[in-house]
Amino acid sequence: MRLITTVAAIAMAAPALAEEVNVYSYRQPELIAPLTDAFTEETGIKVNVAFLNQGMVEKLEAEGDRSPADLVFTVDISRLNSVVEAGLTQPVESEALLATVPANYRDPEGHWYGLTTRARIVYASKDRVADGEVTTYEDLADPKWEGRICTRSGTHAYNVALTSAMLVHHSEEEVKEWLEGVKANLARKPQGNDRAQVKAIWAGECDIAIGNTYYMGKMLADEEQKEWADAVNIVFPTFEDAGTHVNISGVALVKSAPNKENAVKLMEFLTSPKAQEIYAAANFEYPIAPGTTPVDLVASWGEFTADDTNLMEIAKRRADALRLVETVDFDG
Rank of each mutant, 00 (worst) to 15 (best):
V23G: 02
G192R: 06
K218N: 14
D222W: 07
A124D: 06
N22K: 14
E224W: 03
S272A: 13
S25T: 07
R106L: 10
F239Y: 14
E174H: 07
Y215Q: 14
F236K: 02
P68I: 01
I314G: 02
F284K: 08
E174V: 10
R27W: 09
L71N: 00
H156V: 03
V47T: 09
I10G: 04
Q54D: 15
E20P: 06
E268V: 08
E313G: 00
I248G: 01
A257G: 11
A130H: 06
E133N: 07
D131Y: 10
P143W: 04
P102K: 07
M166F: 10
S82L: 05
V83I: 15
Y123R: 00
R27I: 10
R2G: 13
L80Q: 12
Y26E: 10
L31K: 04
R128V: 01
T135E: 12
E93A: 08
A96F: 01
I234Y: 09
E19G: 03
G181M: 07
E174C: 05
L297Y: 11
F284Y: 15
D76Q: 07
V251N: 07
C150W: 05
G44H: 09
A99R: 11
K218Y: 13
A69R: 05
L3D: 13
Q90D: 10
V122T: 08
R106D: 09
V49G: 02
P102D: 04
R66E: 13
A231C: 11
Y158F: 11
C150I: 01
A306F: 03
V7F: 14
T327R: 09
A18F: 11
L167G: 00
F73M: 09
Q54L: 02
E138M: 00
V168S: 01
I210K: 14
R27D: 10
E223D: 15
P102I: 00
A299F: 03
V232A: 03
P34Y: 01
R152F: 03
I210W: 14
L115R: 12
V72M: 07
K316Q: 12
T136G: 05
P102Q: 01
T155S: 14
L88I: 05
I201M: 06
Q54V: 04
F73H: 13
E205W: 04
E240P: 05
T271M: 00
A282N: 13
E261H: 07
V175Q: 04
A321G: 14
S82G: 02
T40F: 06
L98Y: 04
A33I: 00
T116H: 07
A18R: 12
E146Y: 05
A157G: 02
A13S: 15
V175K: 08
A86P: 03
R106H: 08
T89G: 00
D222Q: 07
T135V: 10
Y24M: 11
A165M: 12
I10H: 12
A200F: 12
L311V: 06
P68L: 03
P143E: 02
A69M: 11
V122S: 02
G55C: 04
G132N: 13
F239N: 08
P294L: 09
L98H: 05
E313C: 00
Q276G: 08
K126D: 10
V175T: 15
V84A: 04
A99Q: 06
S153Y: 11
G211D: 08
K274Q: 14
I149R: 03
D142T: 01
L71A: 08
I234C: 09
V49M: 05
M267Y: 10
A321M: 09
L297K: 13
A11W: 11
A289P: 10
